[in-house]
Design a protein around this nucleic acid. Structure first.
Lengths: 199, 199
DNA sequence: CGTATAATCAAACGGAGATTTGATTCTTGT
DNA sequence: ACAAGAATCAAATCTCCGTTTGATTATACG
């Protein structure tokens, strides 16, 4: 009855890492199982041992990881007790840094564009988690406005713009470029904090 | 030898309009020739009379139209002689308004994500036009900074963020929603102008 | 060692959808 | 009315993946 995993194995994580990169490069429809399997020296069919659900399951797992990472970072900051401006600044920095460090996070974009990309059925849990992140940002913004630290803005538009811009970084950021991820994060956090400064 | 177009015809423009909507809804890969042809009461094969190049050609034509529209709007403002702040404010408003009025403009996004969507060979002319738009924004920003009207920012990051946020509107904007396109345009223009205000 | 199981592969299957083809209908100009 | 071509269609083609299947190899444990 006993048995243990053989060690001729490619780890599930390795597949996810490769898949994340390839999905980001070529998009869900543009990426083939062949592409993904080749990246980890496997045949397409072998992927089905690691992910029963096939291509969809792999994408979902990638999305899960990316979303979880950013959500955790942002929540951590949102639950702290810094004053509004500092709190939001930290949240944005963490968010953008997360995006630059984890190519997979383009996941957030893809998730947002589920309609555009024609995804299958995105589990409600996913959308809930994404909405939760947006909700955290909204709270931080409202908190600052009511405290008089921020000028009054349309929270909906501001949140969409902020999230869009932060996630958008994953599209144009190139590791090894002129700026480090931390530099970009700082710059963008400054940008939005300035945008909120009460006159 | 004389001959003229029969009038049992669906206009090329009608096809582009339908295609724009469908590409926006389902994405390039998600949209089928069947979808597009059905939207104008044709069979898939018939589309090839209007667009020799098939699906690719249709997408490219849609992109062309969307990009041209926004580029023209922005250039018009950029070439005016308003003071820096007012000029940029007008450019952003025009840009965002264009995005809300023309679903096809999600084209700008898609163009940016050409790699993500796995497009074929995007004509250099397209990328040039897009870069031109970015260039116009960069100029306006630099102009304002040197004039002392704007605080110093990283022009690269700011331009990316501004363009990303503006185009991103096409993803979340819903006609008939709480805000009109013009309201959103105003709000976003204010946001970025505030972000640039010299202290 | 021997067996059960995991991990893998090679090859075949199946479907979806873009594109092609050849015929058909409609419109216009002479 | 008639010829020429434009616009269309129905059906066939062709290609590209995602997925399945059955066999093969490697590992751990008794």
């Amino acid at each position: 009855m006993p048995r243990k995993p053989a060690e001729q194995t490619v780890s599930r994580q390795a597949i996810l890492d490769a898949a994340a990169r390839i999905f980001c490069e070529r998009g869900y429809h543009g990426a083939t199982m062949q592409d993904i399997s080749a990246a980890v020296d496997l045949t397409p069919g072998s992927l089905y041992h690691h992910f029963e659900g096939g291509k969809d399951a792999i994408l979902l797992a990638v999305l899960q990881a990316g979303l979880d990472r950013v959500a955790a970072d942002v929540r951590c900051v949102a639950e702290s007790s810094f004053p509004p401006a500092e709190k939001l600044h930290r949240a944005i920095r963490a968010h953008v840094l997360g995006v630059t460090e984890q190519g997979a996070v383009a996941a957030l974009m893809i998730l947002e564009m589920r309609a555009t990309l024609g995804l299958p059925d995105v589990p409600a849990e996913f959308l809930a988690r994404r909405d939760q992140v947006e909700s955290l940002y909204r709270q931080m913004i409202v908190e600052g406005i009511t405290a008089g630290a921020f000028r009054p803005v349309d929270v909906g538009v501001f949140a969409h713009t902020l999230l869009g811009a932060s996630n958008w970084v994953s599209v144009w950021y190139r590791p090894g470029g002129r700026l480090k991820g931390a530099d970009i994060a700082e710059e963008i956090a400054d940008l939005f904090l300035n945008a909120l400064r009460a006159r």
